[in-house]
Nucleic acid binder design. Sequence first.
DNA 1: TGACGTGTCAAACAAATGTTTGAATCTTGT
DNA 2: ACAAGATTCAAACATTTGTTTGACACGTCA
Lengths: 221, 221
Amino acid sequence: MKLKSEIKPAEPNPDETRQMLLEAAGEVFAEAGFRNATVREICRRAGANIAAVNYHFGDKERLYSEVLRYSHGKTLEKYPPLLGLAENAPPEKKLRAFVLSLLLRIFDTGPTSWHGRLMAREMIEPSAALDSLVEERIRPMAAQLSKIVAEILNRPVTDECVRLCAFSVVSQCTFYKHCNPVVMRLFPKQSEMDAAAIEQIADHITKFSLAALKSFIEKKR
Amino acid sequence: MKLKSEIKPAEPNPDETRQMLLEAAGEVFAEAGFRNATVREICRRAGANIAAVNYHFGDKERLYSEVLRYSHGKTLEKYPPLLGLAENAPPEKKLRAFVLSLLLRIFDTGPTSWHGRLMAREMIEPSAALDSLVEERIRPMAAQLSKIVAEILNRPVTDECVRLCAFSVVSQCTFYKHCNPVVMRLFPKQSEMDAAAIEQIADHITKFSLAALKSFIEKKR
DNA sequence: TGACGTGTCAAACAAATGTTTGAATCTTGT
DNA sequence: ACAAGATTCAAACATTTGTTTGACACGTCA
């Protein structure tokens, strides 16, 4: 990583605190939700003073907005929607890539693992920041998936059936996250979400969905 | 100077207040979540005094437990898992009944509509009350669905494939609830969840799932 | 009737928490 | 080196909120 020409590790770097706050806030917001999260805990983890949040972000709510945008950008950068697959690849392969990338994004265990939980919380308690996120980030991805599904179904992307089928695909991915507490209690053994498990689930979802999609194919007339 | 001696606004019905508190608390908890919900707002809607919650339930947390159990019992009573379908009905019909009943329970718009949101919140922030709920209520329903799927697949209920397929079915139902904020923003027009829309979605999910399940059928050997 | 238990009420209490403040410290440009 | 701005700090402030309190009203029963 490259920084400014001067290197002052021990000294308080102006952007250092801001960055630490973003990361710490992401963790805390993901763990506790917006309201439950306390500015004091965020600052404690960031090694910053209590007044730091208000100084750098104005207030708690604007900090949250920045965190949401920051985190989503970071995971999308780590796991692009088609994982670098060529645009002219067969739609079946693109579907699998889409499913796998979505799962990887949701279950990312890296230092940015809070993105998944953050989004899950937005689903239940949407904040003002969700509107722009949907328009700028999610709608393009939805269009991408619709195009893949439409291609498989041999139907126009505006077809109602395409929309419903795209939902059916996405739903299977989000399920393991959104219903994790129940899944974990029902099957404690199989609930470890390591790389192998994610691959297995991606395989199942792709197989399941492709089989279903075949029955919806519009024969050319 | 006694102001109250002349007026008698509320008759002292012992269980009346308690019941009103349960209903009001369900609403408020569903809207705001456990932490965000305030005892003051609950009591205001119930037409009760601020001290009523502590008097009748001890504290806010025990009130929440009672609400969760109460609401789940009420919706399950309203929409039984198979909607009164005969046990010996063909598994395809039972699958559709299961899907429809789950959707109806999730999207119930009656006076108990908050149950769906309540459960959605439990998925993200499980409370202590979830453990017993899963064991007593959800596990039997999961077993019921597994049996139906196993029957269709001609596989043993313990088969890994049965579990994954059952998840695929349930996930499509819960999706419209758990991802409602995004769905609503993506397609504002089609997001009205009236009876007709629910029927349509149930049809799609059943068709989609049955087509997929067929490809997983274990040929007898 | 009159004491007792139940339920309700307004007010107060105590703790948590977002935000502000004013001084102290550090960085930067000249 | 010095001054001005940027940043950090500890303390205090103001508000929200769960809980408690003590008085009051009402029905019950000896």
